[in-house]
Simulated scan of single mutants.
Amino acid sequence: MVEIDVDVESLSASRSGAIWGDVWFTMNGDPFPERGWNDLVIALLVEFQAALGVVDGGDSVRRVRFFDGPYWVEFESLGQGGVKISTNTGLVASCGKVEVEGLVRRLGELGRELVDACAAKGFEGSDDVKRLDRLSAR
């Protein structure tokens, strides 16, 4: 089982406008990179959505690197809507079509939550927020 979590209360913007927040995967009960991992959350969620969409569409493999730290997640098509998700720390989970659809839906929900939270904090002008808003179509 694979889940992705974001703590919208943790959002902050740097002077450059980059938006940071806590984001992590839970794979078969194990957090990755770790629970409460702080990274460029908006940009990362955009990359997760794009990669999962491409792989779910039949392309073979997409790797997404976290922006902070040496971590990455790899999405590999298993055919017929299934996806294998692995990390550079050795965590591996295979998702069937139903679970992939749920993960895609969850990424969209998280995207909308993040866009709303960014608007509430005055971060809505960021290009990453605008892109996430488009990907997380309401």
Rank of each mutant, 00 (worst) to 15 (best):
F48L: 04
W72K: 00
W72C: 02
D59F: 11
S77A: 12
W72M: 02
V54N: 02
V61N: 07
P70C: 03
S60M: 12
G69L: 14
P70W: 14
E74Y: 04
R62W: 09
G53Q: 13
D56Y: 02
F75M: 00
Q49H: 09
F75D: 06
R62S: 10
V61P: 01
G69Y: 11
F66L: 12
S77T: 08
V46C: 10
D59T: 07
R62I: 04
L52K: 07
W72D: 11
A50L: 13
S77H: 08
E47Q: 15
R62Q: 13
S77E: 01
R63G: 05
S77N: 15
L78H: 07
Y71V: 10
R63N: 05
P70G: 10
R63D: 06
V54F: 05
P70F: 14
D59E: 15
V64T: 09
V46G: 00
Q49K: 14
P70R: 15
F75G: 08
P70H: 14
P70D: 15
V54T: 14
D68F: 00
L45H: 03
V73K: 07
A51C: 13
F75S: 03
G79D: 08
S77V: 03
F67H: 14
G57C: 03
A50H: 01
G53V: 07
A50I: 07
L52Y: 02
V55M: 03
V61S: 14
V55Q: 07
D59N: 10
E76W: 05
L44A: 06
R63L: 09
V54A: 05
G69S: 13
P70N: 12
G79K: 10
D56I: 00
D56H: 01
Y71P: 12
V61A: 12
L52D: 03
V54R: 10
L52F: 04
P70S: 15
E76C: 10
L44E: 08
S77R: 11
A50N: 12
L44P: 02
L52V: 15
L52H: 04
V54P: 00
V64E: 08
D68L: 11
D68G: 00
R62T: 09
L45T: 09
P70Q: 13
V46D: 01
E76H: 12
D68H: 04
D59P: 00
W72H: 15
R62E: 12
V73C: 08
A51D: 06
L44I: 13
E76A: 15
F67G: 14
G53F: 09
E74R: 14
G58L: 06
D59K: 10
A50V: 11
R65D: 15
S60K: 13
L78V: 06
E47I: 03
G79H: 07
A51E: 07
R62N: 04
S77L: 02
G57D: 02
L44T: 15
L52N: 08
Y71D: 08
V61Q: 10
V73S: 01
E74F: 03
V73P: 10
E74C: 09
R62A: 11
R63F: 01
L44S: 03
V46F: 05
F66W: 05
F66V: 06
V54E: 12
E47T: 07
